[in-house]
Design a protein around this nucleic acid. Sequence first.
DNA 1: CTGATCCTTTTACAAATGTTAAAAATTATC
DNA 2: GATAATTTTTAACATTTGTAAAAGGATCAG
Lengths: 194, 194
Amino acid sequence: MEFPLTIQSLFTYFKTIHSISPEAERALYGISFEIETSKNKHLHEIGQTCKTYYFVSEGLARIFYLKDGTDVTEYFAHQNDMIIRAESLFTGRPSKKAIQALENTVFIGIPASKLEGLFDTYPDLERLFRKILEASFVAYVNRMESLQFHTAEERYNQLVKDYPRLLENVSLKHIASYLGITQVSLSRIRSSNR
Amino acid sequence: MEFPLTIQSLFTYFKTIHSISPEAERALYGISFEIETSKNKHLHEIGQTCKTYYFVSEGLARIFYLKDGTDVTEYFAHQNDMIIRAESLFTGRPSKKAIQALENTVFIGIPASKLEGLFDTYPDLERLFRKILEASFVAYVNRMESLQFHTAEERYNQLVKDYPRLLENVSLKHIASYLGITQVSLSRIRSSNR
DNA sequence: CTGATCCTTTTACAAATGTTAAAAATTATC
DNA sequence: GATAATTTTTAACATTTGTAAAAGGATCAG
């Protein structure tokens, strides 16, 4: 079956996690939608309740919120990454966080209620999403370990190594808050690295 | 159906997350086992590959590992909490972490391979475990937020507020490393709190 | 009870990070 | 292209946290 390229490439990625039947794939395609968000625009605003799983098909995005009025980046999503505000999607409460595109970005959205409806018919799909969640869980555990036990400098160097593209597209302000430090501190780390 | 009390109370907790059919419950009971670990003893050692979901039915436990030779606590598990070394269970790689009882503790173990076998017959069960994972995911996201954006003092006060029992049963050394700070630093925070 | 061990606090000093403000560099807008 | 707005760097100083070492407490085995 022929899907649009953006969705096709995400589904190809899904297959590396858990392969699903063609019927399940078609059903998933039936509820998936593409949404393009241009650089710096918000896909979702603070205060909305998150009811959709999003994945980045092309581009780069972040989750951020306002902590005492200052913009704080919680998460960067690269190609194929799931980007959800879990504390809202999984609890039904409004989210304090927003999703913003950092480049022109194509998101694939999958409405949670429709997806859960498909789970009854296609257990394969539920398994796929359980495994996606497992993988995200591992990523969060590792990130927490890094926040807990590595210095800011180590975290910065690791980030640059893992995602060199980030530096070219994201302001240092956002990178600093993602690392849990101030811009000034990040600037010092960068200059001592030279 | 009558299960042993420890398993019964865990299953009662499961029902608050997602209720499953009596058949599924019986099947789950069939693969669950109880294991008691006395204070300070290890349920699992470093280096083993984690193949079992554990839950704390009674007592208190932690996940820890050795970072450059020093004991570092990653996680505390209270009653009904899932305690898994996700980076091993979900990837099949050996874990660098160990599980230790901090009081005499009753764990309920559920072998992952048997559980996944049941998922095919009882989609309900897969849903339950997906939702358990969702809840843990939310907990980790919140904990990360706290590590990223709160001071050590705020984190300590929050921990004491959430789990007053922890102080009575756990050495400050473990609490300090859980908070991502040194014992000395924790001691300072405590004395300034007086 | 006693010595040994481990845990906790304290002290003194070092290193890292935060705060505020200003300057420099970059980017956006008209 | 000029100006305004934003981002990044630098500086000076304050605060927090880390390190190492010592002392005081608590706990445990014999």
